[in-house]
Simulated scan of single mutants.
Amino acid sequence: MSFAAIAVALALLLSACGNDLPQKTAPPSSSPTPTLECPSPEPTATVTVTMGAAPERSPSPSVPEPCPTATATVRVALHHSGDTCTTIGDKYLAVDPALLCFRNEKGKALWLTAAQVRKAQAAITAAKAEASRKKAEAEETARKNAAAEETARQKAAEEELNKAAEEAQQPTQQKPNYLVPQAPKNDPAPVQQAPSASYYPNCAAARAAGAAPIYAGQPGYRAGLDRDGDGIACE
């Protein structure tokens, strides 16, 4: 049996076995051009049969199961210690320790724990005591200042009264009398008497007799003894 007959028989056998795969036949190759070195070969028949199993379908990918995860409950507090609050006396029990809305020593309403509330109460008590002490000191200082001012006023009034009394006891000061020069006044001339027998040759004699001075009209007066003519001889 020739090779071509064997190939045909094999092809029929495969068809009978129900092979549904398409058969691929290689395209006939063109015969090379004959040359002196390579004479034309004898004609031959080539049959190529591709055998293979039916294609298998890949299984659909399966979705992997999720890994187990640990869960935990987390509580978020709405208020914390030191936050501002609105209504004094409100309590917040969602946290531990619980919080109380309390007004501290500065007058601020805050959420505080029990320990913080006690501390704030102590601070408030201390602040009130300090304010009372300062108020008492201020009142005492004001009282002392008022007493000192009153004492000074009374002392000034007393000194004023003493000064007035001393001035009242002193004699009234008289104005000084200034001497005003006045024109000399002559004593009135004595009444002229009748001349007597007394005669003094000079003033020495009149003085020796104790008659000087001799006024005009008296015994012994004469113009010779009155040099200035003022009516008085032997001045």
Rank of each mutant, 00 (worst) to 15 (best):
F3I: 03
A7S: 15
A7K: 12
S15A: 11
D20M: 09
P22G: 14
P22M: 13
P22L: 15
S31W: 09
T33S: 13
P34V: 06
A45K: 05
P59Q: 14
P59F: 11
T71P: 00
A72M: 06
V76M: 06
L78G: 12
H79W: 07
D83K: 05
I88H: 13
G89V: 06
K91P: 00
D96E: 10
A98W: 09
L100W: 09
L100Y: 12
K108R: 11
L110S: 01
Q116C: 08
Q121G: 00
A122F: 02
K128E: 11
E130I: 00
E130C: 02
K134D: 15
K135V: 00
R143A: 11
K144N: 09
A146E: 15
A146R: 15
A148H: 07
E150R: 15
E150C: 03
Q154I: 07
K155H: 08
A156D: 05
N162E: 14
K163H: 13
A165T: 06
P171K: 11
Q173Y: 03
N177F: 04
V180D: 03
Q182E: 11
D187G: 02
P188I: 11
A189H: 08
S198R: 13
Y200Q: 02
N202H: 02
A206D: 02
Y215H: 12
R222M: 01
D228S: 03
D230I: 03
A233M: 12
E235V: 10
